[in-house]
C-alpha cells in the first residue's frame, strides 16, 4: 500500500497523484497499477504511466484525467489515504542514439514524456510538443526539461491554434530541423500516434510510442491487454509495452479499439 501525499487538480482535466512508496526506481515510460478506493465496486487496478519519481523522498507521481467512474473516484482521494500500488511495470522508452529527441504528447499523453525529458542525457537536444484542448487542459509545463517547449491548443488560448500534429508540421518544416538526427517519441490519442508513425515511416526515423489498453493483472498473466501486431498476432501492452516501436503496431486495429 502507498500513502497518498497529494492528489491535486493541476489542469481542467488533469490530476497529479503523488504517493509515498518504496518501489524501485522506474524508467521513463514504465507504468504502475493503482488500486482504487471502494474495492468492491472498482476492483481492477488502473494502469498509469509514471509522471515523476523522486528517489530521495520516495515519491512517485502519476498524471491522470477523469475518464470514467473509476478515475472519478480516484480524483476524490485525499492525502493520507492508502492505495494499493504495483510497479514499476513494463518496458519504458529506449534511448535512441540520435541526438534530436522530438517528444510529442497529446493531452494526458504528455505525462510519461515529461518524465522522459527530465532523464534525457547531456548532449541530447529535446524538442517537446504539447497538445491540449485549451490552456486550462495543458499539463504542468514546469516539469518538462527541454531545449524548447512548443504548445498547441485547439482554441488557441495558449501557443499555436491547432492540434499537436499541426504543431509538429511547423516544427519539422523549420530549415534547421535535421531529420537525419531525429527520433520521435509519442504518447496520446490513437489518431495522433498513428499519424506520428506515418510521419516516421515517411522520414525513415525511429518512432517509439506509449500505448494504452485496459489491463487486468499488469504482469502478462491474464492476456487482457492485447494489441494486434503489424506482423500478425498480438502482443501484450503490459509486458512488451507500454512503449513499443511504432512499426510493430497494427494501427488500423489499434485505432478502432481506442
Amino acid at each position: 500500500m502507498a500513502e497518498v501525499s497529494a492528489n491535486r487538480q493541476v489542469s481542467s482535466s488533469g490530476f497529479l497523484l503523488t504517493m509515498a512508496t518504496e518501489v524501485p526506481s522506474p524508467d521513463p515510460g514504465q507504468f504502475v497499477m493503482v488500486g482504487l478506493p471502494e474495492p468492491g465496486a472498482f476492483f481492477l487496478r488502473r494502469p498509469f504511466s509514471v509522471f515523476d519519481f523522486q528517489a530521495r523522498r520516495k515519491r512517485l507521481s502519476v498524471y491522470y484525467s477523469v475518464a470514467g467512474p473509476g478515475t472519478e473516484v480516484l480524483s476524490r482521494v485525499r492525502p493520507g489515504e492508502k492505495l494499493s500500488l504495483l510497479g514499476p511495470l513494463g518496458r519504458g522508452f529506449p534511448e535512441s542514439p540520435r541526438r534530436l529527441h522530438v517528444m510529442v504528447g497529446g493531452g494526458r499523453g504528455g505525462a510519461p514524456l515529461a518524465f522522459l525529458s527530465r532523464r534525457a542525457r547531456k548532449g541530447k537536444r529535446v524538442l517537446f510538443l504539447v497538445g491540449a484542448r485549451t490552456e486550462e487542459h495543458v499539463l504542468p509545463l514546469e516539469r518538462i526539461r527541454a531545449s524548447k517547449i512548443f504548445v498547441a491548443t485547439e482554441d488557441g488560448s495558449l501557443g499555436m491554434r491547432g492540434t499537436v500534429l499541426d504543431l509538429l508540421e511547423n516544427v519539422v518544416s523549420s530549415p534547421d530541423f535535421d531529420w537525419a538526427e531525429a527520433a520521435l517519441y509519442g504518447c496520446g490519442p490513437s489518431a495522433l500516434l498513428r499519424k506520428l508513425h506515418a510521419m516516421a515511416v515517411k522520414r525513415r526515423v525511429p518512432c517509439f510510442v506509449s500505448l494504452e489498453a485496459r489491463m487486468g493483472c499488469g504482469l502478462g498473466a491474464c492476456q487482457g491487454c492485447a494489441v494486434r501486431k503489424s506482423s500478425g498476432g498480438f502482443f501484450l501492452v503490459c509486458k512488451e509495452g507500454p512503449v513499443v516501436d511504432s512499426l510493430s503496431v497494427d494501427w488500423q486495429s489499434y485505432s478502432e479499439v481506442r
Partner: peptide, 19 residues
C-alpha cells in the same frame, strides 16, 4: 492468439473478459 481487443471491461463489481 485469442480474441480481438478490447478483451477486458470492468462493470460494477465485476470483470468482463473475452480473452
Amino acid at each position: 492468439q485469442g480474441n480481438a481487443p478490447p478483451r477486458l471491461a470492468e462493470v460494477p463489481s465485476g470483470l468482463l473478459n473475452s480473452i
